[in-house]
Design a protein around this nucleic acid. Structure first.
Length: 774
RNA sequence: UGGGGGAUCGUAUAAUUGGCAGUACGGGUGACUCUGGAUCACUUAGUCGGGGUUCGAAUCCCUGUCCCCCAGCCA
């Protein structure tokens, strides 16, 4: 393990794009991102993902990330949200420096851009009613219709727009719209609204404006004004990108900002939409935005989760384009992992059971040394813990009839009191109902800091001194919802129907060891064997302590005692497939039906050349492809081989381009395939030549000659190369011989790489198999 | 139904861009233990289905299926 190869950092697709832009110098090495919240709600853990991405990408590339409040809707926004959002981002540990911006500061610029658009004939004032606009927009399957106001003159539009700003019209009388395409299959492109009239006070601009820009107009401009390079947003804005590009291409030159979309974070057993969170708050299902059961940043903070844990979590989730729901256990794991190293251990009894140590002198007490940290945590520190004749232990740490494997206290049995003595249960005292009231135990004075002689004590339990312990209220939190996806309302219910009635359990007779009185009130603890706790920042007072459980410890004991149902869900079963006409194959069928020569070509390919149905279909779908194929055939009379190369290799290489736009013709292509078929060059080399032809055109034979390409089909030439590779990878050779035959691909790859793809693969394979099994 | 996205162990996410399907969480088993925590070891389990190209396919081609988004004067 001497070599610490700097493993190339694994990048998500966004970071890949940024790295590529840096490589090509698209923005001259600049990287500017932005986090653009609307100040109309509190930040939640989903935002933390976006914040971490935006600030992270900027920082990793020596760039900056702007905090920009996207405050273009006066009706829902508020200064208190601006403050809470800034507080939350800072708390998470991110810094926007001087780059704090407000969309509402750009209103004058937005107006000027709108005027420019009107002057360019790319925007118009529409005077249709809200309802009419909806009708004119059409549906996803029917195109929209142009508004009768669409062709107003530039002068009229300018005048109307000026008067809109001047406040001459009531709400809804007019809107400004982009003039794009009412028939666009992308609904967002059907003349999106740019401005609406709203006589409302804005929390920052007051009554200065009565027209407000819409998202599709404001957002790209904000990005452009701030010289943002990479505008990262969530998947639901994919369709809006067309408007984004249209607008910026109308108004700016490259390099201008570009938008990329990633999947928002969804977490099991909770909801993430601001609207639903607000509903929970307003309707009293939770105590507020900062209720510790909420996955808002403020809720998590009050709960006691650290910013580091949240950041680790969102980093572990990753960034991709798949809609996904992350399991809560991942979050819980990162929280525990974080707290394990930072939370000092103390003892608290949540559900007390009185224990009297009958052989311990009445009135006596000892202050025992107890480490704050277990041996595996490299931190120092101890405190004194009082011990006396009467203590409390956890009720569930005693069992009159212990189940198999029980390692705690039961009648006649011994248990270790953590940091203290070994005690033995001698007697159980009950009330008249038979409920266990208290235990009488004896202690072994020789067991303080020492193992008992001649016997083994299996378990250790926590406890507190009855005389010294501090009473406390303890709040146990559980998932807010009883269902993994509360948003799934397929059963005709609402998300509120899935609230978990036991999401908060309050224990008001708990006891905590006295040492905590000396600690700062925001100290995070592990109550040994229970979980991680912190004083509630809102409700806890020195004389009336209140603790929040941040997260419980992993518990492999109760899990074993009552095995939970397997978490895995069964995979969805595909219903019997319905026959739907595939659009592309349908287009080819139609082309042949309308075009007799194509149909004839198809027949010829099938009967004369004996091509498979699929190959013939693909080649006779349009005239250019058929002509290309025929031209290739003239140069190389091997229909099957040509069909393979056109349909599989060529189509894969040209991506979005078409055969018509190729810098070479069918004849050249035919010659290329001929070279491969003649085994002059290998299949791989053939693809290399094709790439060259695609890039610069040219004749395959010339390229092959110029590059000195020739397939190596000589075993004597290949053997030393193979031997060398096997010598260099002795470990893999033995792994192969031990049955890991998948490594053959690895060796093939090495040989092909070494030979620049020249080696005859069939031959290499034979040779390799021979040598490897030798 | 039009358009835009997407599909890899139970979950999330990788795969040198055609060459060893890896990592983490979860689950299981065991070791250790004055926390039934932590740690360690082992283990479990996957390329949406069907065809094709290739020596070799998660990756390329064809085809089918399923999921998400879009018809706010919200963002």
């Amino acid at each position: 393990m001497n070599n610490t190869t700097p493993t190339p950092e694994k990048k998500d697709f966004i970071r890949e794009i940024v790295a590529e832009d840096n490589r090509t110098g698209r923005y001259g090495g600049r990287v500017v991102t932005r986090f653009p919240p609307e100040p109309n709600g509190f930040l939640h853990i989903g935002h933390a993902k976006s914040i971490s991405l935006n600030f992270g990408v900027a920082e990793e590339n020596g760039g900056v990330c702007h905090l920009r409040f996207d405050d273009t809707n006066p009706e829902t926004e508020d200064m208190s949200y601006v403050e809470s959002i800034q507080r939350d981002i800072r708390w998470l540990g991110f810094d926007w420096g001087e780059h704090l911006y407000f969309a509402s500061d750009y209103f004058e610029q937005f107006y000027a851009f709108a005027v420019r658009l009107i002057e360019a004939g790319r925007a118009y004032v529409d005077s249709l009613s809200e309802e009419e606009i909806r009708v004119y927009r059409g549906t996803v399957t029917e195109p929209g219709r142009n508004s009768p106001y669409r062709e107003r003159s530039v002068e009229e539009n300018l005048e109307l727009f000026r008067r809109m700003r001047a406040g001459e019209f009531p709400d809804g009388a007019h809107v400004l719209r982009a003039k794009i395409d009412m028939a666009s299959p992308n609904m967002k492109m059907r003349d999106p609204l740019l401005y609406r009239i709203r006589h409302a006070s804005h929390y920052r601009r007051g009554d200065e404006w009565c027209i407000y820009p819409m998202y599709d107009f404001a957002h790209p401009l904000e990005d452009a004004i701030e010289n943002v390079t990479h505008s990262l947003c969530t998947l639901e804005f994919e369709n809006n990108r067309a408007v984004y590009d249209w607008l910026l291409d109308s108004l700016f030159d490259e390099p201008r900002p570009h938008q990329y979309e990633f999947a928002r974070l969804a977490l099991d057993y909770t909801v993430m939409s601001k609207r639903k969170l607000l509903q929970l708050v307003n309707e009293g299902y939770v105590s507020g935005w900062d209720d510790p059961r909420m996955f808002t940043i403020s809720g998590l903070r009050r709960r006691g989760v650290t910013p580091e844990a949240i950041r680790t979590f969102v980093e572990r989730v990753g960034v991709a384009k798949v809609n996904s729901r992350v399991e809560t256990v991942l979050l819980e794991h990162t929280i525990r992992d974080d707290l394990n190293y930072r939370a000092r251990r103390v003892m608290a009894v949540l559900d007390p059971l009185k224990v009297v140590i009958s052989n311990y002198p009445a009135g006596a007490e000892e202050w025992l040394d107890a480490d704050y940290w277990p041996r595996d945590i490299p931190r120092e520190g101890t405190r004194k813990v009082p011990f006396g004749r009467t203590i409390y232990i956890e009720r569930e740490d005693f069992a009159e009839e212990p189940p198999r494997g029980f390692k705690r206290l039961s009648p006649g049995q011994e248990v270790r009191l953590r940091h203290s003595y070994v005690i033995k249960c001698e007697e159980v005292i009950r009330d008249e109902l038979g409920r266990v009231l208290e235990l009488r135990c004896t202690y072994d004075p020789t067991t303080l800091g020492a193992r008992p002689r001649g016997r083994k004590v299996k378990g250790a339990i926590h406890w507190v001194s009855a005389e010294h312990a501090l009473p406390a209220e303890v709040r146990l939190y559980d998932r807010l919802f009883a269902r993994a996806n509360p948003d799934d309302t397929s059963e005709g219910k609402t998300f509120k129907d899935y609230l978990n009635p036991n999401s908060l359990i309050t224990l008001d007779r708990a006891f905590v060891e006295p040492s905590i009185a000396a600690d700062p009130t925001d100290t995070r603890y592990q109550f040994e064997r229970q979980g991680y706790f912190i004083q509630d920042a809102v409700d806890s007072r020195p004389e009336a302590l209140v603790f929040n459980r941040i997260i419980g410890l992993r518990d492999t004991w109760t899990k074993r005692a009552e095995p939970a149902p397997q978490a895995g869900a069964s995979r969805p079963v595909d219903p019997a497939g319905m026959v739907v006409e595939g659009t592309r194959s349908e287009a080819r069928d139609r082309a042949r039906a309308e075009n007799p020569p194509l149909q004839a070509a198809y027949e010829r390919y099938r009967t004369e050349f004996g091509l498979e149905e699929q190959d013939a279909d693909l080649l006779s779908g349009d005239l250019t492809t058929a002509a290309f194929f025929d031209a290739a055939l003239a140069a190389h009379n091997n229909p099957k081989s040509l069909a393979n190369w056109i349909n599989n290799v060529l189509q894969g290489e040209i991506k979005d381009a078409t055969i018509a736009s190729l810098p070479f013709g069918g004849a050249e292509f035919g010659k290329l395939v001929a070279l491969v078929d003649a085994k002059t060059i290998s299949h791989n080399q053939g693809k290399q030549v094709l790439a060259e032809m695609l890039a610069n055109g040219g004749d395959p034979e010339t390229i092959v000659a110029a590059k000195g390409m020739k397939q190596i089909s000589d075993a004597d030439a290949l053997a030393p190369i193979i031997d060398q590779i096997m010598a260099d990878n002795a470990g893999k050779v033995s792994a192969y011989r031990n049955g890991k035959i998948g490594l053959l691909g690895f060796f093939m790859g090495q040989v092909m790489r070494q030979t620049g793809g020249k080696a005859n693969p069939q031959l290499v394979k034979t040779l390799l198999e021979e040598k490897l099994s030798a």
